[in-house]
Amino acid sequence: MPTELPYAADAEMSLTYDELEVLRLQYQKELAQDHVTTQTKFNLCWGLVKSPIREHQVEGVKLLQEIYRAEPTRRRECLYYLALGHFKMGNFEEARRFNGLLLEKEPTNLQAQSLAQLISKGAARDGYIGMAIVGGVAAVGTILLAGLIRRARK
């Protein structure tokens, strides 16, 4: 099957508030009728994941997980969206694992490959910042301690 998956860049393009609202209304309408179609649910998920607001992303990933549980035939696709959602939330570890599972099934999937690169890049960036901070703090700490010790000796 030709993979029709969006690239990560697509996830950064947010829907307008009105569009998201339409999707949410549709979802809630079906929820009230006791039968939510997978497509409606996914529409809202995707809209939420695309949103720059973190609460939305969390909600989106949560709904994606529901789809993943309920629709075994859609799992393959959902793996990617879950990875993407986690990636946007900054959970690189989870994103890597979901994406890894997808790549295991479809090693040639271009979108998944590019997402894998993005994830490792993001993780590395976090790592650099982390190292920098750790380093900085360590340095400051040493200086402080040295000062204290020196003062104590005097």
């Binding site: 996914f42 529409n43 859609r74 393959r76 696709e77 599972l101």
Partner: peptide
């Protein structure tokens, strides 16, 4: 959880395709 091969409509119409068609 197991990830089966997509079948039925899942293999014909991807979620994104559906999304683009229905938004």
């Amino acid at each position: 959880a197991e990830v089966p091969e997509p079948e039925g409509v899942a293999s014909n119409v991807s979620l994104l395709r559906g999304f683009n068609a229905t938004i």
